[in-house]
Amino acid sequence: MNEIIIYSMITLAGLGIASAVILYFVAQKFKVIEDPRIDIVADNLPGANCGGCGFAGCRNFAEAIVKAESLEGLSCPVGGATVMGNIGQAMGLAVEASEPKIAVVRCNGSKAHAPAKVVFDSASRCSFAHSLFSGESGCPNGCLGLGDCVVSCSFDAIHIDSETGLPVVNDNCVACGACVKACPRSVIELRYKGKKDRRIFVSCINTEKGAIARKNCEVACIGCGKCVKVCPFDAITLANNLAYIDFEKCKLCRKCVAECPTGAIHELNFPARKEPVAASEQTDAAV
C-alpha cells in the first residue's frame, strides 16, 4: 500500500518537474519582447475597448502612444483629461488639453413635430431604412428613430425615447463616436460638453428649402439666417438652407435661441430666463 503511495508521489513529482523545465525553456524560446511601458499605459486606460480613440482597442492605443513617443493627436475620449494626464505623467510627455465632448442628437423631428406620412414595415435598422426611403415623416435628413446608434453604443448612453421616437443621450456618454459612425444620416455630432453641461446647438440638419422642410417638420431649420445676424461671436454659419453653430466659437450667450422662428435652436441646462421667450418653447425631447 505504502509503495503505491510513494510511487505515485514520485511519478507525479517527476512529471511536474519535467513539465516545469520544459515550460521554462519553451517560454524562453518564444518570449515576446515588449516595451514594458505599453503595460503601464494600458493599465491607465479604461479598458472598455470602445474604439473611440480610433484604434482597435485600449492595448493598440497604448502601443501607439509608446511608439509615437508623444501624445499629440492621441486622446482617450472615455478617460478624458484625467486619464491622459496620468498617462502623460507616467510617460513623461506633455498632454494636449482637450475639452470634454458629448454626443448631441441634432434632430427634433419627434412623432408630434414631424408626423408620419407612411408606415415603415421592414427590418428595424436605420441603415436599411435610409437606403429604402426618405423616412416616415418625409424628411430626407432627419433621424429615422430605428436605433442604429443605440446598438452601436457600448456605454448604454443612448436610448430611443418611445414618446418622441428620437434618441436621447445620457450622462454615460464618453464621446467615443461610435453612434456618429453608426448613424447613416450623420444626425449625431460630438460637441463640447460645455460648462455645467450647458450647450446650444441647431437641432436640425435638413438642407431642403425652408418651405419644403417646414412641410415635413414644424421645428425644422428653415435657413432664414436670423441667428447668423444676431450672433455676436460669428459662431453661426448658414449653408444649404441650414444654420450651424460652431461649438468652438459659441460663448453660450443664448441670443440665437430667442431669435429662431421655428425653435430649431436648442439650449440645454440653462437656468430659466427672466423674461418669457415667445419664440421658442423648448421641448425636453431633444436633450
Binding site: 408620419a116 406620412k117 407612411v118 408606415v119 415603415f120 414595415d121 421592414s122 427590418a123 436599411f128 429604402l132 426611403f133
Partner: peptide
C-alpha cells in the same frame, strides 16, 4: 392623409 405602407422587397 392616407398612410401608405413602405417596406423592402
Amino acid at each position: 392623409m392616407n398612410l401608405l405602407t413602405v417596406s423592402g422587397s
